Computed example of a mutant assay.
Amino acid sequence: MKTDIRLIYIVDDEPLLTDMLCDYLSDLDDRLLIRPFATGEACLAAMNERPSLIILDYYLNSREKDAANGIDILRKIKDHNKTLPVVMLSSQKNYGTAARTIQYGAVHYVIKGQDAFAEIYELIKANV
Score class of each variant (00 low, 15 high):
Arg100Tyr: 07
Ile8Met: 02
Gly96Pro: 01
Ala116Gln: 06
Ser52Gly: 14
Asp23Thr: 09
Met20His: 03
Val110Glu: 00
Leu7Met: 13
Ala98Cys: 04
Pro51Arg: 01
Thr83Met: 10
Leu32Gln: 02
Met1Leu: 13
Arg63Ile: 11
Glu14Ile: 13
Lys78Val: 04
Thr97Gln: 04
Ala98Thr: 08
Asn94Met: 10
Ile8Lys: 00
Gln92Asp: 10
Thr83Arg: 09
Thr83Asn: 12
Phe37Gly: 01
Lys65Val: 14
Leu56Glu: 06
Ile71Leu: 08
Ile120Pro: 00
Arg50Met: 11
Leu84Ser: 02
His80Cys: 09
Met20Phe: 05
Thr3Cys: 06
Lys125Ile: 06
Glu64Trp: 10
Leu56Asn: 09
Gly70Trp: 01
Phe37Lys: 00
Val107Pro: 00
Leu28Cys: 12
Tyr24Asn: 09
Pro51Gly: 13
Leu123Ser: 06
Leu33Cys: 15
Cys22Thr: 15
Asp30Trp: 14
Asp72Leu: 04
Ala99Lys: 15
Thr39His: 13
Leu60Lys: 04
Arg63Ser: 08
Val11Phe: 10
Ile8Glu: 01
Arg75Leu: 06
Ile124Leu: 12
Leu16Trp: 15
Gln114Ser: 14
Leu33Ser: 15
Ala126Cys: 10
Gly40Gln: 05
Ser91Met: 15
Thr39Gln: 11
Asp23Pro: 03
Arg100Lys: 11
Lys93Tyr: 10
Thr3Ser: 08
Tyr121Leu: 02
Glu49Lys: 03
Asp79Pro: 06
Pro36Ala: 02
Gly40Arg: 03
Arg6Phe: 08
Ile34Trp: 02
Val107His: 05
Leu16Pro: 12
Lys112Met: 07
Ala46Gly: 09
Leu74Pro: 03
Lys65Leu: 10
Asp23Asn: 11
